[in-house]
Simulated assay, not measured.
Amino acid sequence: MGDFSIGQVVRSIKGRDQDKVFVVVGIVDDQHLLIADGDLRRIESPKKKKIKHLAKFNIISHEIRQRIVGQVKINNAFIRRELERLGVRSRD
C-alpha cells in the first residue's frame, strides 16, 4: 500500500468527500496521506485520509511534486489549475 507519492492524483472512495479528486501533498505514515484539491480541501489544511479509502490514478503532477519537495510556496489556485490541466478536475 505504500506506493503513493507526493503529487499523485487520487479519488476518495469513502466519506463525505466520496468521488472527489485530490492530489497527495504529504505522507504521514504507511496508512495515512495528506490530500488537497485547492477548493474543498485547501493546501493550508489538507485532509488526513487513510490509504484504504483512496483510489489512485496513474497520474503524477510533477510540477506539484517539485514544488512540495523543494519547499516552494504553492497556492490553491495552482492545485486547481494543475488538476484541470491533467483532465481530472471537473468545473463545478
Rank of each mutant, 00 (worst) to 15 (best):
I27L: 03
R81N: 14
V25P: 01
Q66T: 12
V72Y: 12
D37R: 07
R80P: 00
I60V: 15
D92P: 14
K52E: 02
D29M: 04
K56T: 05
V10A: 04
K49M: 09
E82Q: 02
R11S: 14
L54A: 03
V23S: 01
K48Q: 11
Q18S: 13
A77C: 12
D30T: 06
Q8N: 15
G70M: 08
L54V: 03
V23Q: 02
K49Q: 09
H53K: 13
Q66N: 15
V28L: 07
D29G: 10
I13Q: 05
I64K: 05
R81I: 05
V88M: 10
G2P: 03
K20Q: 15
G38D: 10
S45F: 10
R41Q: 04
F78D: 12
D92G: 07
K20S: 09
K20M: 07
H53N: 15
R41S: 05
R89A: 15
I13M: 07
I35R: 05
R89Q: 14
L54K: 02
N76I: 13
N76H: 11
F4R: 03
H53M: 09
V69E: 14
V28H: 06
N75K: 08
E63N: 11
R81V: 02
G87E: 05
G15A: 01
S12K: 07
I64Y: 05
M1E: 10
V21E: 13
I60P: 05
I68Y: 02
K20P: 03
Q66Y: 11
F78H: 09
L83E: 10
R42Q: 06
G2F: 01
G7N: 06
K20H: 12
N58A: 07
Q31T: 14
G38M: 03
I43W: 03
G87F: 08
S90N: 12
E63W: 08
V72E: 15
I74A: 04
L83F: 04
L34K: 15
K47I: 06
D39Y: 15
A55R: 12
V24L: 03
V21R: 06
D17I: 08
I27C: 04
R42K: 05
G87W: 08
Q71T: 12
R89W: 11
N58G: 07
N75C: 10
R89P: 11
D19R: 06
I68N: 07
L33V: 00
H32D: 13
R80A: 09
K20T: 09
L86C: 03
D92F: 11
L34H: 13
I43N: 00
L40R: 14
R91M: 06
I68D: 00
I60S: 10
D39R: 14
I60E: 13
N58E: 11
H53D: 15
K56F: 02
R11C: 15
I13T: 12
F22N: 00
D17K: 03
P46M: 00
G15P: 01
V25G: 01
L40V: 13
K49T: 08
V88I: 11
D37H: 02
L86V: 02
S45G: 09
D17H: 09
K52S: 05
V88E: 07
A55D: 13
A55M: 10
R85S: 10
R80G: 06
K50H: 06
L34P: 08
H62C: 02
K73V: 07
G15W: 00
R85A: 14
I79H: 04
